[in-house]
Design a protein around this nucleic acid. Structure first.
Lengths: 164, 164
DNA sequence: GTCTAAGATGGAATATTTTGGAAAATATCG
DNA sequence: CGATATTTTCCAAAATATTCCATCTTAGAC
């Protein structure tokens, strides 16, 4: 599987970060060596290979009609502000644009968390990641509780096997 | 994707601003090198390549019946007042006309936000953009929250991937 | 009409940031 | 422990942003 694991990585004084070598290989296994960075409302940055991102975007836009006279459409377009192409340098680095760093509350020369998300990676401040992890685990156990409760009243046991 | 990212740019003493190089390239990829500036009721300026703007306008007017007896039609046409052509200079600059600056509460020698919106850019005062961004992100988070709540009771994990 | 002042425009000089590369430091492995 | 790979820091060159200045245009006063 690609893009796994979590790493603590430090930004250099101009806001660049270097990919760990296995993550770098995962990215370079795509032809372009370009990535798309975008800001998620969870307060982190998603970094996907251009190819993956394009596919995701196509699926999303399939339904959507762009009519700039509509406020919803204009706000949809404004997400362009939260998106940026970057090229992975020869040294395996990318620059995280200033504004993006600010939005995620990550600062130059600090360490950030790089989180493998199977089809790409995410970048979190250490603090935000801690919070996110707590939410994920909390959600999981709540869900498990629900499942157990339902089972109390079910007659047969043909559940699907889930996993996290 | 074109016209992405957000930038803090300062106006010079005569109300001109210079495009960042990637934005400039996006504009110059259209033949004319001309842009149309117009004021949006959100309190910002939209700056689109002439070609994009023309197309949008055609579509919009296609639906509008021009009947000068109609106040709606007349008011629609008066938006011409809020619209202006500009040519991108050899140095990659445009002048924001005085009246427009006033309406957006942006002032000479101050910094403004330049916001990529995929088919063009928008110009906001730093303060207004902060507010707008908060609205966009808040809306997003609310949507995410709903999705998570639904997941608590769903059995399988076939969600679609959203993104910006 | 001519003169003056205000503003607009184009160009260039300066200051700042970004970029690519390499050196130093650190970690990893045999 | 030494050798290798990786990470981090640092520096110089390039690119870019910002400021400044000279010129041109316009509008208004006389």
């Amino acid at each position: 599987m690609s893009f796994t694991g979590q790493y603590s990585i430090s930004l250099d004084s101009s806001g660049r970060l270097k990919f760990p070598s296995n993550i770098l290989q995962d990215f370079l296994s795509f032809a372009s060596g370009e990535v798309v960075i975008y800001f998620l409302s969870e307060g982190c940055l998603a970094v996907y290979p251009l190819e993956i991102w394009s596919k995701m975007r196509e699926e999303e836009l399939g339904n959507l009609k762009i009519v700039p006279q509509s406020i919803v459409a204009r706000r949809r377009l404004r997400r362009g502000a939260l998106t940026q192409n970057e090229k992975i340098s020869k040294q395996g680095r990318i620059t995280i644009p200033q504004q993006f760093r600010k939005m995620c509350k990550i600062y130059d020369t600090e360490s950030v968390m790089m989180i493998g998300s199977e089809i790409g990676i995410e970048i979190w401040s250490e603090e935000s990641w801690e919070r996110e992890l707590a939410i994920i685990l909390e959600h999981d156990s709540e869900k498990s509780q629900n499942e157990m409760n339902q089972d109390l009243y079910s007659e047969n046991h043909t559940q699907t096997m889930g996993g996290s």
